[in-house]
């Protein structure tokens, strides 16, 4: 990956989920949990997508499936234009180009390895040992640990949280990946380190053309770093669009509810509190999966479209990168009169 990669024209999605399904079967309950239930998502070159949702909505599972740590039960992960095969060699290749950054940097680093060993592990594994020392120093520099020589012999416990997360990112960068999948990358850091690490992700996008899928429950984070935002509810993406579209003109009632509880907006808009806990992914409600908690459905229970909410699953959103997409019967313009129209619609695109 070099700066030249940014100039590659066209959509050129570097990582894509196509109708991805991941289920977990548990011994006790007969029904398997549908953690990721038919998801389309395409990550373009030098693009940062924020994947937003409540805990338990399947966003981490989607991240793990994209890295190849979880084998999907259906659909495909498209890596560099080709479907990912789950052979050992193919996975190894895939993991060189798609790297994972986890939430808690202190846990993500083996406490008994030095920074040098931690960063060098990936390149060693992939046989990139020719100029390992320079490679490690370059990765550390890119991750903002300067001068790198100062950090090589240290152990994780001798670093601050922000520095630890930078070491994790350096370990990923040492493999020259094209995508970082970051699962809650800053939620365990304090506020100042948080800003630095997010800044780093943006810098890496700008200088290296690195794409990133940032999983978070924090809408403010999405606003700060993302180009596009995907909102996930109970295993499915319910709204997808640019950061301005989704956060300033949210269409899906779930997104609106999430936004309404942000501190700054409380005065401007009415507070929408969702009823109850997120349902169990082993028992996803019929019809629109959000309708039991949906404020819009509760409000418009008499509307003829409300019947659709009970009976019809809104169509799965496609992975279009240039439209604002919403999986909601009410948001879909003209949908109630035309039963054949796709309930999932492009709003104002």
């Amino acid at each position: 990956m070099s700066a030249a990669a940014i100039e590659v024209p066209g959509p050129a999605d570097v990582l894509e989920a196509r109708n991805l399904r991941v289920t977990f079967s548990s011994r006790r309950s007969a029904a398997p949990a549908r953690a990721v239930d038919d998801v389309n998502l395409a990550l373009g070159r030098a693009e940062i997508i924020a994947l937003i949702g409540e805990s338990g909505c399947g966003k981490s599972t989607l991240a793990r499936a994209l890295v190849g740590l979880v084998k999907p039960q259906g659909g495909q992960v498209i890596s560099q234009g080709a479907p990912l095969k789950y052979s050992k060699a193919a996975l190894r290749q895939h993991r060189r180009s798609v790297q994972l950054v986890l939430q808690d940097p202190a846990g993500a680093l083996n406490p008994r390895h030095t920074v040098y060993d931690l960063v060098a592990e990936g390149p060693r594994l992939h046989g990139l040992t020719g100029n390992l020392y320079e490679r490690v120093c370059t990765a550390l520099t890119q991750a903002g640990l300067r001068p790198p020589e100062q950090f090589l012999a240290r152990y994780p416990h001798q670093l601050s949280g922000g520095q630890q997360q930078r070491v994790v990112i350096a370990g990923a960068l040492a493999l020259e990946p094209s995508v970082l999948v970051a699962d809650e990358p800053v939620s365990s850091l304090d506020a100042s380190a948080r800003g630095e690490v997010l800044r780093l992700l943006i810098d890496l996008r700008d200088t290296l053309g690195l794409s990133a899928l940032v999983v978070s429950h924090d809408l403010g984070l999405a606003w700060n770093i993302a180009d596009r935002v995907a909102v996930m509810y109970l295993g499915r993406i319910v709204e997808l669009g640019t950061v301005e579209e989704v956060l300033l003109r949210p269409q899906h009632p779930y997104t609106r509810a999430l936004l309404s509880i942000l501190p700054g907006r409380r005065s401007a808009q009415t507070l929408t509190l969702l009823q109850g806990e997120a349902p169990d992914p082993a028992a996803i409600p019929g019809g629109c999966r959000f309708h039991p908690r949906c404020p819009l459905y509760a409000e418009k229970a008499d509307d003829p479209r409300a019947q659709w909410c009970r009976e019809r699953d809104p169509q799965v959103l496609p992975a279009l990168s240039d439209s604002h997409l919403v999986a909601c019967h009410f948001a879909a313009s003209g949908a109630p009169d035309n039963p054949t129209a796709p309930p999932a619609s492009a709003v104002g695109a």
Partner: peptide, 22 residues
């Protein structure tokens, strides 16, 4: 339960390697 095992897997280590090395 430690995340560094997941990191090691994500780097491309096989299960047995993750076990023996980390």
């Amino acid at each position: 339960g430690n995340a560094y095992l997941t990191t090691a897997r994500a780097k491309g280590l096989r299960d047995a390697e993750v076990r023996q090395r980390h």
